[in-house]
Design a protein around this nucleic acid. Structure first.
Lengths: 306, 306
DNA sequence: AACAATTACGCACCACGTAAGGATA
DNA sequence: TATCCTTACGTGGTGCGTAATTGTT
């Protein structure tokens, strides 16, 4: 029985679905299923009753749920007490992040992390992938968080961890033209005015790569503009200049309040948020805590709500 | 972080030595060392200070120790509460055990287990290895605990778990002749009157096998008697009929109060206590709890005190 | 020499991912 | 067909054992 299993079980009970819990935990659904089964056979008791659409805890499962939370909070309190002894609360952690990550994913995480360690100083700098990685390599950051593919020099001794999964969505202005758009393919969009993220941005890299897989290039589209700022892109789309694309996380709010509409495209383009840090370089304890907070299997953050 | 790691850390702090803790946990010393290191790097804090002979907890280690105990007890309380819901407290568990195990190792474990589950009915039957295994195979027992080598038919679908490690000791009457006996070899004992456990007993099997490795047989010794009852053997040795051998566990008390003396022999003869149960046969939840209690990595029992 | 811990290295198991199957609306 | 869970199976990471090294009494 380990901490991560408690975390997993709690997530399943909270979401009432193994599948969505798996998504939030960034693991596969069968993987989570089998973990649940491991827990159940440990107590040889059924903890979850499989309902028509999902699962719900049995009485024994409810007991487990209650104690799992207690035990996890006990772990947290312990860690905090240890941290008090170590005197690491006011350490400075320098974080480099790319635009999407730095503007949309990280702020909430920093906020949450600060609730745990109010005195910690998290210095966040946002730039493009290339720049961020370079500055990590020259030890300007303790850690870097980027989206999309990254070129790391062979000789660099970096650790890489998955922080979160997101996907690229196509966004359109909330006008009649785009009302109730049917599920479409990339080919259906080639004639529509398209605003692209500038080359070098993570989203653009992912998009280019996925076009390549589909046997297409950006040349095939009617590109009306390229912009590097995500806010600029969103404004342009809202203003009706064309459609565009970005990570779901970046337009979560707009989609929710219908400031932008999502174009349902048949192709799913996943984007990985990854965290990098020096393998053997000295890491302040607090930086390590933050890494675990973001990317550790047993803590979930990057405040994504699905 | 998992339950077993908490258990391990507690054991290390309690014994103040990684090596003896490893023995009690039935794992290798380097294995335990590396687990400790894993825990330390998880918090990236030193939890144990390496002293001249052993280790002692740092302040942070003491915090960890305190919470580890709390968390473990919370797990226990949870399990009990789940068991209440399952209504398994008064299940009957049939245990078969060989003489050494049944008379010396198990009783204390049963006692301890009953503290946890007062209403459980543990039926213990003691016989020789062959008989015990046969009756397990014909489902007369839920589980069997035996010492020494066991012949299991190919087709039998049994699970085997290590319950504990012990070793064979040579015992002599507490007389002048045996006072301050120097470390000796098997060869030095061939002319001494020897009382052997009957063939078929676990200890005898282990002994025969280890003689074989040394290129000897029982014929080489001056065997004055063979007895199946361990108590009879002990009485005979105490009465001065000769020397004999048995597991350390079986003569722990006598050695401590000097009713018997141990002959320090250069050869170490380990004895394994193993627990067997049907793989696919139905196991009452309580039997599974008992197995975990005896052989599970995260609970230690078989009340051996070293 | 005996004991205690660490380092190095290899194997074996298990967690987890992919793919396919079954059940329900 | 879409959703949700399970089963089957292959692979990589790691827990742990053996052996060798260092340090201490």
């Amino acid at each position: 029985m380990n901490r991560y299993q408690l975390e997993m079980f709690i997530m399943v009970v909270d979401t009432k679905k193994i599948s969505t819990a798996a998504k939030l935990l960034n693991i596969s659904q069968p993987g989570l299923s089998s973990q649940i089964k491991t827990i159940e056979s440990y107590y040889n008791a059924q903890l979850l009753a499989r309902t028509k659409n999902g699962v719900e805890p049995t009485p024994a499962g409810q007991v487990f749920y209650r104690y799992a939370k207690k035990i996890l909070s006990m772990y947290d309190v312990m860690e905090k007490e240890i941290d008090d002894l170590l005197g690491i609360q006011d350490q400075v952690v320098n974080i480099g992040a790319t635009y999407t990550v730095g503007n949309y994913a990280i702020p909430c995480s920093i906020w949450t992390f600060k609730e745990k360690y109010p005195k910690v100083a998290l210095q966040l700098e946002v730039s493009n992938t290339h720049d961020i990685i370079n500055r990590l390599l020259s030890h300007k950051f303790h850690l870097a968080i980027v989206e999309g593919p990254v070129d790391i020099p062979e000789e660099a001794d970096l650790t890489c961890k998955l922080a979160a999964n997101d996907e690229i969505v196509f966004i359109a202005p909330p006008t009649k033209d785009w009302e109730n758009t049917a599920m479409c393919s990339l080919a259906d969009l080639v004639d529509v005015p398209l605003i692209l993220p500038s080359p070098g941005s993570g989203v653009r890299e992912v998009f280019d790569k996925s076009l390549l897989d589909a046997g297409m290039t950006v040349q095939d589209f009617r590109v009306v503009s390229q912009m590097s700022s995500i806010e600029a892109i969103k404004s342009a789309v809202e203003a009706g200049m064309g459609i565009s694309l970005c990570t779901r996380m970046a337009v979560q709010k707009e989609l929710r309040r219908n400031a932008l509409w999502e174009i349902p495209v048949h192709l799913s383009i996943p984007v990985q948020f990854r965290i990098f840090y020096h393998n053997n370089g000295y890491l302040p304890a607090m930086a390590q805590r933050f890494i675990r907070f973001i990317a550790g299997p047993e803590e979930l953050s990057l405040c994504e709500k699905k």
